[in-house]
Design a protein around this nucleic acid. Structure first.
Lengths: 193, 193
DNA sequence: AGTTTTTCTTGTCATATGGCAAGTTTTATT
DNA sequence: AATAAAACTTGCCATATGACAAGAAAAACT
């Protein structure tokens, strides 16, 4: 476990001691996912979470009318986790799918519990991460009400330019709450400015 | 601290022992808030959270164009907390306001931290509550994309009938992401069915 | 009880976005 | 290279919801 380990970046900003980080990092297992493969499928219970070292991932739900709605995008450095399923131990409604070949670091629920209850700073970190996810979701939710589709798109371009460049238009559209047709028109309008 | 204490309901379903519950409950302080008074204001950092014994409360933000958007409603038994501000120790963007006279039980951040790190089941409970809030927010967010305004309203009526009956139309409207005018028309349409 | 303020309703018209279908371009597959 | 499949664009028209303003009803205040 050298200083060069990818997860040292992820845990870089926490208050964990060097020793604590080593312990935590040693529990993670490297995995690769092929493009279009699933990390989690609707109906199953999340027993792991991951940090992405490379690639793009999305989560999505199928709504009551059968429409595929992207709920989030994940890329390098992000935590990929279904919070409710992982912590409430319930079957999930979401699917998590690799949009490209991905390299990830995986931790399972039991090991997480061990670390969570034994290392105070690991749990402070976990709480912070969860709250940050909550906050991001809230901002997205408010943006959905307060902003026009075009402004939501421009905000996404600003916040996650690499996602906009690497993910297909239809997935971006459903994430923004519009159709692919509308997003195509919005892009055209922006290009002509 | 008798069995009759209001907070025994709140902590009823947790794995905490009787003794642990007593310790936790003894740290809460009863407070009353007058209608229209603020529990938290934009720009300040949340140092407390509350459980509602009676009354109605809402949280809201002011968007970039000055519009008031309700982000949540709280009523009897609910936890009232600004997760990001409370845990990340940041100034909040939200306002939390009593919509009627309210009786609440308050806990401050420092006491929370003590309980969180010393009582394992208190922290499991805290994590569960946070994740449940996350889940509710996600459902609301997806509903915003997948459902028509009328369906969102009907869902709210079903999930929080007492809120719909006690809160002014304009606040319900912004929570649903529509104007008060539209909500008034939706209500009319439903009434005529 | 009377007055003011807030809340809710309704009309007219404007606009953002959707639905569908036909092309076009790009990407994947053999 | 040829073919198939997926992704993206564009046109036409439909529709949900918004903007604004005027009344009506209800609630708050003196």
């Amino acid at each position: 476990m050298t200083e060069q380990h990818f997860l040292n970046n992820v845990f870089g900003k926490t208050d964990m001691t060097k020793k604590e980080k080593e312990i935590a990092i040693s529990k993670f297992k490297q995995l690769t996912f092929e493009k279009n493969s699933f990390l989690l499928e609707e109906g199953k219970t999340a027993n792991h979470y991951w940090f992405i070292q490379s690639g793009f991932i999305r989560s999505y739900v199928i709504d009551t009318e059968g429409n595929d709605i992207t709920t989030n995008f994940f890329s390098v450095g992000d935590i990929v986790i279904d919070w409710p399923s992982f912590f409430l131990r319930n079957p999930t409604r979401e699917n998590i799918q690799a949009l490209s070949d991905c390299v990830c670091w995986q931790l399972d629920f039991e090991t997480f519990q061990e670390l969570f209850h034994s290392i105070r700073n690991f749990r402070e970190q976990g709480r912070t991460t969860l709250v940050s996810s909550y906050f991001a979701l809230k901002r997205h939710s408010i943006s959905m009400i307060a902003d026009q589709a075009k402004d939501r798109y421009l905000r996404l371009v600003k916040e996650k330019p690499h996602v906009v460049q690497n993910v297909s238009l239809k997935h971006i559209a459903t994430f923004l709450g519009i159709t692919d047709t509308s997003l195509s028109r919005i892009r055209k309008e922006i290009a002509s400015e």
